[in-house]
Design a protein around this nucleic acid. Structure first.
Lengths: 354, 354
DNA sequence: GTGAAAGCGCTAACAC
DNA sequence: GTGTTAGCGCTTTCAC
């Protein structure tokens, strides 16, 4: 009875990898046949031969070497994902959806974090390209790619996520953020009668100006609302916390707040509650993203929700299916009504975990 | 003036990859010299030759093929990371630290999610191994590896993270969870005078029984506290929410709560607040993990903090440095006092984002 | 239905 | 200091 390491030791007796050649030898066939069996083609193999080869593979504990295959085929079935901040709940959910979508299509994801630094981002793109990834998923300020250095035709196909609008020669995916902002401010004005709405947002958003600022102003104009303070802080819990603290300390807290990310909204809620501000009575708020993290603040966040699952699926189709001509893909963001705006409480969707 | 694609088209005129051979030819040297220049060895190269080679590389836009290098060297500089749930704040923070630690050492991470399913986990390990990863970082119930199938000597070095104790033949890393639980319950008893403390935990924890249950019982015995209800729900916001709802609905809410993960604690806080329970007055709580997400609930979570950064650094050292004999590495978990236990409020560490 | 052999792009031992 | 060359493990064309 052969053990997995029979005949797989080198002259010094060390364990050696079992290769396709070992299998071929043991099965008394050529290496080509082993390939045909493994890949079910491109040439036919007699059933009994195939069976014998499979038996030998099992016996020897043969494991195909993916690297060798990749070198030969020129394809790694790997995609690179560059994120700014994996802890931001929106990025985290999108990353999770992307991983699922990739996995469903037989791809693996190499994930790297840029911390929003352009130089790091460039370095990571170069590194991943050198690793022969079959595609690149980039989440970064879309503006950064708007005037790209002349693109190298050997670059892997790329999709820019979290992008405000078209970028020449690129597939881009993003929310219809202006529309989401408009819906948020309109809801605050029309349903909850708020007349002065501020905005919390971050630097280097989807574009300049960020469409959420545009949408906020649009809705303000349309509903004769007064423009409240515009606070720019980092895209994080801490950023939101700081923004809200400043509003409180300077006594400029408006009638209502539109917060451009769930990450910031969580910090805003914390700061407001800490200061004894009643949400939604004194300062209702609507956020942007609609992540599950926003379901678990108290009060839970009413949010303009980005359809992360659909975005991820499209991103993967773009990278793994037939090439289509680059264009922008905008996704609608619908308002998810929870209680931070003043709507009646709804318990979190607790039936399932996801 | 050569452009990046000069001489890099095949007979059909399609863009071809620039290889080391193209560089060698254009520079009038052998391929070996190009290698020596790139790798700065193993043989010396005349400065002027090296300069010429570098110039040609730049001119041609040469990009080394990582796959080919990996095949030759038998090392991919890639590590596999298998997580159960990327949205759990503790896993997310650990994953972020691991990515940083990997990046600092020149490694990339292939990240995959098992959703806690043992079969998926096994499949992912096999896939990643086939991809010739240089090491595997596994976050899963340690018990699952306790009686491993006879290990294949060709498996990549592996470290089990979030592990309660030693597993034969494996490097394992984990928190001293029993100690953390003890500290939590003791703090609730001694500092805040709580006499009846319940526990919220999840299924398939660090071990069976989970050391947090053991520590909780230890402290209960040591401080003559009454054992409150033991609630088992999933390791998620939703799980925590459900646990707290059940406690409220059945009128069994204890004097204080030790919640075994920040993910659950966020859900517990939400449910308690929603039901009008005053935290910390009516039901103080201490959680386990000490993630940054726990800084932004209101009240913020007092937590037994796991040192994720240190754990990640050790994991990477174990995988990338000289082989040491497998053993368990336990990390101390210290209590981070915030306000959910009843200690005086402290604002979140807002100075920096990380 | 099967096998021989070229080659994917790179490294490094060995010869000069 | 530089060049030649034999692989790394796999796929696939082409002959038989």
């Amino acid at each position: 009875m052969a053990t997995p390491t029979d005949g797989t030791r080198d002259d010094a007796g060390r364990v050696r990898r079992v290769t396709r050649a070992d299998v071929a030898r043991a099965a008394g066939v050529s290496t080509a046949v082993v390939s045909y069996v493994m890949n079910d083609g491109p040439r036919p193999v007699a059933p009994e031969t195939a069976e014998r080869v499979r038996a030998v593979m099992a016996e020897l504990g043969y494991r195909p070497n993916f690297t060798a295959r990749a070198l030969n085929l020129g394809t790694t079935h790997t995609l690179g994902l560059v994120l700014q901040d994996t802890l931001n709940p929106f990025f985290a959910e999108l990353a999770q959806s992307l991983e699922r979508a990739a996995s469903a299509r037989g791809y693996h994801l190499v994930v790297a974090e840029s911390h929003g630094d352009p130089a790091t981002e460039q370095r990571l793109v170069a590194e991943l390209t050198g690793r022969q990834v079959d595609g690149l998923l980039l989440m970064s300020s879309g503006d950064r790619w708007r005037d790209p250095a002349p693109r190298d035709p050997r670059d892997p196909p790329t999709v820019l996520l979290d992008c405000a609008g078209p970028v020449a020669g690129r597939h881009t995916i993003g929310p219809d953020a202006a529309d989401g902002a408009r819906a948020a401010v309109t809801h605050l004005a029309q349903t909850h009668g708020r007349r002065r709405t501020g905005l919390v947002i971050g630097p280097d958003g989807l574009a300049s100006p960020d469409p959420r600022i545009v949408g906020w102003r649009d809705a303000i104009a349309a509903h004769r609302v007064i423009e409240g303070p515009l606070m720019i802080e980092t895209w994080s819990n801490a950023g939101g916390y700081r923004a809200a603290r400043r509003l409180i300390e300077t006594g400029t807290l408006p009638d209502a707040l539109f917060v451009s990310s769930d990450a910031q909204a969580i910090g805003v809620v914390r700061a407001l509650l800490e200061a004894g501000v009643d949400i939604p009575r004194e300062c209702p708020l609507v956020s942007f993203d609609g992540t599950r993290a926003g379901e678990y603040t108290w009060p839970a966040l009413t949010s303009a929700r980005q359809p992360v699952g659909e975005m991820a699926d499209l991103a993967l189709d773009l990278l793994t299916s037939e090439r289509s001509t680059p264009r922008h893909h905008a996704f609608p963001v619908g308002l998810v009504l929870r209680e931070s705006c003043g709507c009646p409480p709804t318990p979190p969707s607790v039936a399932s975990d996801h």
